[in-house]
Design a protein around this nucleic acid. Structure first.
Length: 145
RNA sequence: CCAGCCGGCCGGACGGCCGCUGCCGGAUGUCUCGCGUUGUGGCGAUCAGCACCCGGUGGAGGAAAGUCCGGGCUCCAUGGAAGCAAGGUGGCGGCUAACGGCCGCCGGGGGCGACCCCAGGGAAAGUGCCACAGAAAACAAACCGCCUUCGGUUCGCCGGAGGUAAGGGUGAAACGGUGCGGUAAGAGCGCACCGCGUGUCUGGCAACAGACGCGGCAGGGCAAACCCCACCUGGAGCAAGACCAAAUAGGGGCGGCCGGACGUGCGUUGGCGACAACGUGACGUCAGGCGAGUUUUCAAGCCAGCCGCCCGGGUUGGUUGCUAGAGGCGCCCAGCGAUGGGCGUCCCAGACGAAUGGCCGUCGCGGAGGGAAACCUCCUGACAGAACCCGGCUUACAGGCCGGCUGGUAUU
């Protein structure tokens, strides 16, 4: 199953303030999805006549990538996004929660660190973000680590 | 072989695993319809759509960039034409859909040369500016000088008057340049050549060039200062524009709730529109809520909210615009060339928080080191990502290939 990506600015902003974990090549941030408002609206005309709004509860995890212009030109940003996507796709099935949205904010080293390192860091970040989530309500605690 | 000039082209190759996406074909399921059954399961059909699987096929650039020009396309505005304003262009001729582009030629400048560079109309229409330096920067004037003459003198020279613009010095630029004559010294004062202006003739479509004559020289430069002349230009842009579907709130019109009304047809007027008003009276349809007055006829006026239909606008999502085009490639013809014509052949990205990839291996190119050599080891890979589409320009770019030409050197 391919990655479902965040589409609108509002969806990105909704993840702000969630549990976060910084790595040399990126910053991962995640939050429980608030309400399936947009998802319900969007998938409704797609599934044609038989669609009842109740049926589309179990959408999987969704991912958004943020790569600022400060990091490089279009070629650099494209490559970073593709590497992150490729590294994340096999991990998402096991480590990502279907009820959460994730945002990956890229940093400069994501362009040329070894792929295995990048993938390992992503794996660790996903685990740690959810450990912090277990002890949640103190979002500050996640920042101190 | 060395140095250089011009034009054209390429922008690593192959393979493995895992992915994304457009199109085509196939299978399954769903949807839809039919048959059958108490019902389910089932069977058959299956245009299109959707999901998933399998197979095939296509999938970033020479600049995709900057967004600097010119078009196509779309909407808006607009009687035609001209003028004004603003902006742009600027030798001449051609090419082109068009251009500020390209080609050829002319003129000026640079280079031994191949060749390169030029914002290259008008400075005798007017205004303005010309820093510093310099005596003086434009109706001319004279610092050091030169010459004549007068006066003085310590015999070195000093001062006055006049004539000069050759020399010096300043500057980007000093009222033509060089030479000879001439002169007190000088000066187009005279002459020759060059430059400049002007007239005629010749060549050229033209820019312009050449020849001959005339003029003693007038008219410094800057127009990427204003300006003048000639020519060009309506505005906004695919987030243009078109269509569809939802749900919500609100707005508007008409009717059912108002008696003579309504519908159809025609005409006029108003409105963005749905529609309304009035007229006409052909055809058709229909009759009971309140309502001053006794009833009938007649009958001004009527709140509220509900329902139905319709209209325009906003929001969200989807579809479309969206890729077959001033298209690519090959050959032939015309032309010095830009380019044009003909024939054949090919279909070559269409995403939308945005696909066109991720990881790995082998080889090749380049650089450095080692080695006599074959070769070995290490390192590096340029600029840069389509967003409606074309024609240009400009800018960035590791490394490399091909062709033509110039100047040397060597050999024959």
């Amino acid at each position: 199953m391919p990655l479902v990506t965040l589409k609108t600015r509002a969806e990105f902003l909704a993840v702000r303030g969630g549990a976060r974990c910084a790595m040399p090549a990126f910053v991962l941030e995640t939050k429980l999805r608030a309400s399936p408002t947009r998802g319900g609206m969007a998938s409704n005309p797609g599934s044609a006549g038989s669609a009842d709004p109740l049926a589309e509860a179990p959408t999987g995890p969704r991912f958004g990538f943020t790569i600022t212009k400060k990091i490089g030109n279009a070629v650099v940003r494209n490559r970073i996004r593709r590497r992150l996507k490729a590294a994340l796709t096999p991990l998402s099935a096991q480590l990502a929660a279907a009820t959460h949205d994730y945002v990956v904010i890229a940093r400069q080293p994501a362009f040329d660190i070894p792929f295995a390192t990048l993938q390992k860091d992503l794996e660790r970040a996903l685990q740690r973000v959810h450990h912090a989530g277990a002890a949640r309500d103190g979002r500050r605690a996640a920042r101190v680590t």
